[in-house]
């Protein structure tokens, strides 16, 4: 008697976790660019505002709560949806589409950054692990978006700029929800254009944001607007 139940439980467990029913995967690529060029970290200098040279050393950010919609209704919601996008080791976001070979969708939605619940939930693993360097140590909270580099415009030590954007409490809540029109396909390509971001920042004045503040919220909006779908 007992044994049968155990067996049923075990087999149920496997069906749930083994991806047995998974037939398809949706791939989301986010490519950091600088205008028309694909971004190369550290070793190259870009011509930003014509006259100024600039180098990007670190670009890391979180996307979370990935969803697909059709006609404004959610048709797929990724569970435990946290992804750290790191320009130094780009990976696609893989969205398993279980049991839904015939799924139809016309929009992709996700959050740039992490919500306040995630920010107060203690230690977590995977992309949220504290060794990822995306957590403030002296005051709790995740860094949603990290951009570090050098520009001649910055009158700072080694001409460095550092933007660590985050904050999970109003009025400094930085999370941005993004929605894109897409076509029903297995691959979605997005780009984050750093040129667009840096053209909207006066690097001579703003080159150092390291804690939750209104400027960080403003910049998070600029970043969000610089993430777009690459048309096929």
């Amino acid at each position: 008697m007992k044994k049968t139940y155990k067996l049923i439980f075990i087999s149920l467990f496997f069906i749930n976790t083994s991806g047995f029913a998974q037939t398809n995967t949706l791939k989301i690529n986010i490519t950091p660019t600088f205008g028309a060029m694909v971004l190369q970290l550290a070793d190259s200098l870009f011509n930003a505002n014509d006259s100024t040279q600039l180098q990007v050393d670190v670009l890391k950010f979180y996307i979370s709560k990935v969803q697909l919609l059709n006609d404004g209704k959610i048709v797929l919601e990724e569970k435990n949806s946290y992804h750290l996008i790191d320009a130094s080791e780009l990976k696609s976001v893989l969205l398993p589409i279980e049991n839904k070979e015939n799924i139809h969708f016309d929009e992709l939605q996700f959050d740039l950054g992490l919500d306040s619940t995630t920010n107060v939930s203690g230690a977590m693993g995977g992309d949220l692990d504290p060794t990822k360097g995306m957590y403030w140590t002296w005051q709790s909270g995740f860094i949603n978006f990290k951009l570090e580099g050098k520009s001649k415009l910055c009158k700072t030590r080694n001409s460095e700029f550092q933007f660590h954007l985050g904050g999970y409490q109003q009025p400094n809540y930085c999370i941005q929800t993004l929605r894109f029109q897409i076509t029903n396909s297995n691959v979605i390509n997005l780009k984050l254009d750093l040129k667009k971001i840096l053209q909207q920042i006066d690097l001579a004045k703003t080159n150092h944001i390291m804690s939750p503040c209104l400027e960080a919220v403003l910049l998070s909006k600029i970043v969000a607007n610089s993430l777009t779908v690459i048309e096929n």
Partner: peptide, 13 residues
Amino acid sequence: AINHLDMQALAPI
């Protein structure tokens, strides 16, 4: 400044 016991150790470290 710290919102969860789990995250406390990060501060002194």
